[in-house]
Design a binder for these strands. Structure first.
Lengths: 132, 132
DNA sequence: CTATATAGGTTATAACATTACAATAGTCTA
DNA sequence: TAGACTATTGTAATGTTATAACCTATATAG
C-alpha cells in the first residue's frame, strides 16, 4: 500500500507529534504543502483511519498516529489521556480484549470497532502533585 | 439532591427517548419551555453529567440518560452502538471493569473517568440481514 | 485507449461548543 | 434579617469542528 503525497504529509505530521492534533491544526500546519480547505484534511484523515494508521480521539475531536500500525485490524483502540500533561498513550491489553469479545458473544453483538478512552492522571503527574 | 426545573426538563426529555439527542436537538425540543440559547442546554447537560444522570456519547457528540443512575460513581461508562438501527445500549460488566482497574494499577495510571464505545451490529439487525 | 475507481480542488454551509458579561435566586451565617 | 457567598440563568457574540455539493484530475485494469 502506497500513500499519496497528501496522505504522507498528514501522517508524517502526526507521527512527529506526541499530542493529538485537530483537523484544523493540521490544516494550518500544512498550508505550505498545498492544503487549503478543511475537507482536504478530513478526506486524508478518513483514509488513514480506514488504513489503521491514524485514530480519532472521540472525546477530543482530534487525531493521532497509531502507535501499533503493525497490529493490523485491531478493532479495540484504547488510550489513556492525562488531564494534566495531556499526554496520550495508546495501549493494547490482551485480557481486556478477550473479555470484551466474550461479552460481545454473550449479548450477540457483532463488534466492528471499539474505542476505549481513559481520562485521569498519569504516573508522572501523580509524582509532580506530591512534590508541589 | 433536587434538580432545578431546567435540569428536570432536559433529564425528562432524555429519559423518554431511546436514542441519543444532540444539544441542539434538545434546544429545539425545549424551546417552548424557555430554552433559547445553546449555552442554556450545555450548562444543564454539564450539571447532569456531573451528577451521573446523563452521559455524553463521545463518538456521536450527543447525550443520553444514564440507564443505571443507582450505580453512583461508576467511572467506566460503556455502550454498544448499532450502526444499522442506531440503538444505544449502556452496559456494565464486572470482569471488564476489574481487568481495567488491574491494568491501570500496573501502569500506575490514576483513572478518573472512562468511556467505552462499541460500534457494530446488534443481534436484531443481524437477523434482519439474514432475512433480506 | 477507455471505463472505472480513487483522489483532489473549491465554495458554502451545517453542526457543535464556548467566552464574556450581566442578572437572579437560593443558602448560610453573623 | 442583612450581608456574603454560591449556584443558576439570560443573552449576544464568537469560536471550533465537520460535511454537502459539484466539479476536475490521476491512476489502473481490461
Amino acid at each position: 500500500m502506497k500513500l499519496t503525497s497528501k496522505q504522507d504529509s498528514v501522517l508524517s505530521l502526526l507521527l512527529q507529534e506526541k499530542k493529538t492534533l485537530s483537523a484544523y491544526t493540521i490544516l494550518e500546519r500544512l498550508r505550505h504543502q498545498g492544503f487549503r480547505a478543511p475537507l482536504q484534511v478530513y478526506r486524508v484523515l478518513d483514509k488513514l483511519i480506514e488504513l489503521g494508521l491514524v485514530h480519532r480521539l472521540e472525546s477530543m475531536n482530534s487525531f493521532i498516529a497509531c502507535s501499533y500500525p503493525q497490529f493490523e485490524n485491531h478493532t479495540l483502540i484504547a488510550f489513556t489521556i492525562c488531564k494534566h500533561c495531556e499526554n496520550i498513550t495508546e495501549f493494547h491489553n490482551k485480557i481486556l480484549n478477550e473479555e470484551l469479545n466474550k461479552y460481545m458473544q454473550t449479548i450477540h453483538f457483532q463488534e466492528e470497532g471499539t474505542k476505549l478512552e481513559i481520562r485521569g492522571t498519569c504516573a508522572l503527574c501523580q509524582k509532580r502533585q506530591v512534590i508541589s
